[in-house]
Structures are given as structure tokens and as C-alpha cells.
């Protein structure tokens, strides 16, 4: 079986979405696509329970006051990584808002919350209260570091499991 899945990378501006995938994917496109078309697509092969799955990663430009994620980019996705910057508390709330809007646009699909930049422990701002909120909503979250690679593979693997068994 040759399985492909569309996966979106969501998160506000500068949370490290592009850095998260840069070292772990095969790519033919330049990052400038992010600032022009608003998305850059990369490919990552993961193996879940012996089944290889090709992830087509839609790295969608981070939201800011000038840009919001187009729903057309989300259409047909099998799952997504909701990326937050652990050193910026505001990205937490904005990510929650983005998740609600995403679900509103394309319905409930599997996703994983990624708390990025765990290597910057001194600047960490997302504390137990926020994590408790995630637990309460029964959201799966993983702390990652694009810099060291910690948690990145695990995040993709967990999302793969969710996608395979939604």
C-alpha cells in the first residue's frame, strides 16, 4: 500500500514551524514561497506500525496581523501540527484560537500540539496552568526543539498514529 497524507503545520508567526521541518524533510522549494504564496510544501516519510506513510507537509506561513491561514490550504488535510513557542506565552492563546478556526473550517481532524524551543529553558513561559488546560481538552502535546531535534520525530510519529487511527 502506497499511502500519502496531507499534513499542515499551523502556528502564529515565528514559532519555529519552518525550522522544525527544515532538517527532517526533503524539499525542492525555497523558503521564499512562504512569503509569496504563503505556503511551502515539503515531504517527510514516516513509518507507523510498519506502514510507510508519505507526509506532504504544508508549512503554512505563520499568522500575523496581515496574514491569516487560508482555508483552501487546509482543505483535504489528514492532520496538523499546532505549533506554539514555549518562550512566548501569547502564542499559546493564539494557537488555541487558530485551532478553533481550523476545526470550524475543515472539521475535526487529528492534530498534535507542539511546544517548540524547549532548549531555551530559561526563557520558558508556558507553565503548568497552560498544560493543564491542554490536558483538560484532551489534547496531545509534545515539547520539541528544532535546534537540537528533541521531540521532533516523536511529534511526527504520534501524529502519524493519530492519522492512521483517527
Amino acid at each position: 500500500m502506497n499511502l500519502k497524507k496531507k499534513i499542515c503545520m499551523l502556528g502564529v508567526y515565528s514559532v519555529g514551524k519552518t525550522s522544525l521541518v527544515r532538517s527532517f524533510v526533503s524539499s525542492i522549494f525555497d523558503d521564499k514561497y512562504l512569503s509569496t504564496v504563503g505556503v511551502k510544501i515539503d515531504k517527510k516519510l514516516v513509518e507507523i506500525e510498519g506502514q510507510p506513510i508519505e507526509f506532504l507537509l504544508w508549512d503554512i506561513a505563520g499568522e500575523d496581523e496581515h496574514f491569516s491561514v487560508p482555508s483552501s490550504y487546509l482543505r483535504g488535510a489528514s492532520g496538523y501540527l499546532l505549533v506554539m513557542d514555549g518562550t512566548r506565552k501569547d502564542t499559546f492563546d493564539r494557537a488555541l484560537d487558530l485551532q478553533f478556526r481550523t476545526e470550524d473550517a475543515i472539521g475535526p481532524i487529528p492534530f498534535i500540539v507542539v511546544l517548540n524551543k524547549v532548549d531555551l529553558a530559561d526563557e520558558w513561559q508556558i507553565g503548568p496552568q497552560e498544560l493543564a488546560r491542554l490536558d483538560k481538552m484532551n489534547w496531545t502535546f509534545i515539547k520539541t526543539s528544532a535546534k537540537t531535534g528533541a521531540g521532533v520525530e516523536e511529534a511526527f510519529h504520534k501524529l502519524g498514529q493519530k492519522v492512521l487511527h483517527p
Binding site: 505556503v39 510544501i41 504544508w58 483552501s72
Partner: peptide, 20 residues
């Protein structure tokens, strides 16, 4: 050819971009 999956996805993204 380049990776057809990436090319096709990007092509779709550009079409969506134009349409939007």
C-alpha cells in the same frame, strides 16, 4: 522530473492562492 508530490501540492497551493 522533480518530486511529483511536491510539485502537485505546490501547484494546487498556487491555484488556491490565485483563486483566493
Amino acid at each position: 522530473t522533480e518530486d511529483p508530490d511536491l510539485v502537485a501540492s505546490m501547484l494546487s497551493a498556487i491555484r488556491d492562492f490565485v483563486q483566493d
